[in-house]
Write a protein that binds this DNA or RNA. Structure first.
Lengths: 255, 255
DNA sequence: TGCTGTCCCTTTGTCCGACAAAGTTAGAGT
DNA sequence: ACTCTAACTTTGTCGGACAAAGGGACAGCA
């Protein structure tokens, strides 16, 4: 019969980790609010009683996690983690796991349909204004696939935003970051690709305005199917996402 | 009229960031494969020509991003970022953004339905075996809400895995991490909560076996609605997710 | 008064050197 | 071939150091 456990496992995390955890705890449970200053490295050295190098390693960890950042004067303060920044970590992971475009397509279908449903139900006037503005800009660059692809990505971010569901916004982001960089190629490959894309956006905006869920779902599906048709002219859906996207993601993360 | 921009913004990233970026690039574009050793800190000092403190800060950044980790002997090697680890960052972000349970519920409804649809279509024998094993364990702890909640969380991870769609697996994870810790409470609050939960799981497994999509979707919906009913006995869906979940998430991240 | 330039102090990013603890390797001894 | 021990290496932490950049106060000037 095994002995009854006398001791609890003791916490042997390195000091920099403990520093990071301690600060994280204060932020997450609200004692330090987003925007609050954290203090200088020297302050933290005094408070934690460890060397500045140790503090700095702990800070890097939190900074990478998006929990704290440095303002223009490089002073530390807590902040609300930005979705796109975090999502780019996930996109990177998806690339390394070599997910296929089929997985991306299927997941995006689900997530974008859910987004439009939410948007149809809850979009505000302001959301609609943003979407219309985006549409206008899209029409202006209809002949430029790169610019148009950028507008398209933004459009779908705005739709997700209009759904007023931040969980959904976050969930779709990693897939979107990998998905939308290909739009440029798919638009180029299909005759009338640009106009079709913009037309779909217009129908989506109208659907939201009319609170017409059916139309919203329908046009989201068509829009994605257009992407798929365009993509399959270039490559198989079963190809894994390529490394080239990471440059895009890396640039986005830095912002 | 403003001057035409003569200069591009110059890249003034600190050295530790450049170190991290350089290593990240090599990993992401595949020159360093997951599992490959990175070399000792001393090696990196020689290669990059910067101080060890600088190298260490760069390493922390990558470590936090899940791109590299230290094995049992603390040597560095590249590795495949683990979904749950990354997702816990996102869960944390959702908590800080004070998302509501309604958002969580709505997003989970979408994501879990998509998971079951994928599972019905593509689950393997092995997936089914894992699910059945989970079911057996659930039945064994049907009277223990805490253990049962844990089984429930695992069950849905397994369903997502059975969908063979890693994008979906990843997308559902942050919501799930916040969602499933409440299952314990909802099971406790509802008469026959435990048995209902296990029955739903059984129906889901059967649906996957029979490749019966309708049934899968139906029982996923019911299962989530059960959660909702249980939750609404305790609190409003419009309450924001509480800080208490973070302890759960923090423990999970460490693993 | 409002703007500008200067000096000083603080803070950050980086460097150097050091050391204990833990892990690794090589060699001695059986 | 196996074990035990004695170097050697590597990591985590420490102390101190310094240049560059920012912030603040203060004087000078319009």
């Amino acid at each position: 019969m095994p002995l009854a456990p006398l001791f609890r496992p003791i916490d042997v995390a390195p000091a920099y980790q403990k520093v990071a955890d301690a600060i994280e705890r204060e932020i997450v449970n609200g004692r330090i609010k987003p925007g609050d200053p954290i203090g200088t490295e020297h302050d933290l050295v005094r408070q934690f009683g460890v060397n500045r190098s140790t503090i700095r390693e702990g800070i890097r960890v939190l900074e990478e996690g998006g929990l704290i950042s440095r303002d223009s004067s490089r002073r530390l303060h807590a902040c609300l983690p930005r979705y796109t920044r975090l999502a780019s970590r996930l996109s990177r992971a998806l690339v390394l796991h070599e997910v296929t475009f089929r997985e991306l397509y299927e997941a995006s279908m689900t997530l974008e349909v859910a987004s439009i449903e939410g948007a149809v139900e809850r979009a505000t006037e302001e959301n609609l204004a943003e979407l219309s503005d985006n549409l206008a800009r899209s029409e202006a660059v209809i002949g430029d696939p790169a610019m148009l692809a950028e507008c398209d990505a933004e459009f779908h971010v705005l739709v997700a935003k209009a759904s007023q569901n931040r969980v959904l916004q976050l969930a779709r982001e990693p897939a979107a970051q990998l998905f939308y960089p290909t739009t440029e190629m798919t638009v180029t490959g299909v005759a009338e690709g640009g106009p079709r894309l913009v037309a779909a956006h217009r129908h989506l905006i109208e659907a939201i305005q009319r609170r017409d869920r059916e139309a919203g779902v329908l046009w989201t599906r068509r829009h994605l199917q257009d992407w798929r048709r365009g993509f399959e002219k270039i490559a198989s859906l079963d190809r894994s996402v390529e490394h080239m996207y990471m440059e895009h993601a890396q640039a986005a993360r830095r912002r």
